[in-house]
Simulated assay, not measured.
Amino acid sequence: MAITVKKCTIEDLSELQKISKVTFTETFEEHNAPEHLNAYLEKAYNSGQLASELANPSSEFYFVCYNEETAGYLKINTGDAQTEPMGKEALEIERIYVKNKYHKHGLGKRLMEEAFDIAARGMKTKIWLGVWENNENAIAFYDKKGFVQQGSHSFYMGDDEQVDLIMVKTITP
């Protein structure tokens, strides 16, 4: 089993769009109305939106591959690219997704390690993320990694307002 992590570039736009839509749908389709899910997918993962995010110097995307197949991805933000104003000392994990068939293979852990490494290189003192309040598996994973809930914010799946828990981990650079 070979697990590799690769930083995405604009040349990866099509693959990024594909893995984004697949993993988000796998994660949330059974809990959301199709019209809300489809509205979110079109807004968040259209080519123009993803190209803009890839071009932002304060955002980075990484693929995790399992035996050379793209199995998931990570999106991190710093500075003003963060979805909440958490300061220059913070790194946000905006997206961390792995295809269902690769759960329990250590890929989420590997992406999390990548985020921690990037934070350490950038001298960040905290890593934070938002996680849907009903995503118990993800919350348990973040708990195990040392994240603690420190608030919440609204997340819109189409027109459906949902609650994301804000979880933070203090780190020493």
Rank of each mutant, 00 (worst) to 15 (best):
G87C: 11
W128L: 07
A71T: 00
T172D: 04
I171P: 09
F116E: 15
M86A: 15
A55D: 14
V5D: 02
K43C: 10
E136P: 00
P57R: 12
Y97F: 13
G48W: 10
K7V: 14
Q162A: 00
F61H: 04
E89G: 08
G130H: 02
N135R: 04
D160V: 02
K145F: 07
S152W: 06
F116A: 05
I166K: 07
L107H: 04
I19P: 02
G146V: 07
A39Q: 06
C65L: 15
L54E: 14
L129K: 03
A44M: 09
I139E: 07
G130I: 05
W132L: 02
I10S: 13
T78V: 15
T172R: 08
N77L: 05
T172I: 01
A90V: 10
T83K: 12
T4M: 11
K6Q: 13
D159G: 00
I127S: 02
C8S: 14
I19D: 01
L74K: 06
P85E: 15
Q162S: 03
S152G: 06
K99P: 04
A71C: 03
N77P: 03
D117E: 12
I76F: 11
H31G: 11
G151I: 05
M1L: 05
G146F: 12
A71D: 00
H153R: 12
K124H: 09
Y62C: 09
L50G: 03
N100V: 05
P34V: 06
V98F: 03
A39G: 05
I19W: 03
Y142E: 09
Y62G: 07
Q82M: 03
F141H: 03
E29W: 00
E133H: 10
N38T: 06
E84K: 15
N137E: 13
T83E: 15
K104P: 00
N137A: 12
H31I: 10
S152Y: 07
L41Q: 01
D159I: 01
W132M: 05
L41M: 06
L165S: 06
Q49I: 03
Q162P: 07
T78G: 09
A51I: 00
A39H: 00
M86D: 05
H153V: 06
Y102D: 02
K21T: 03
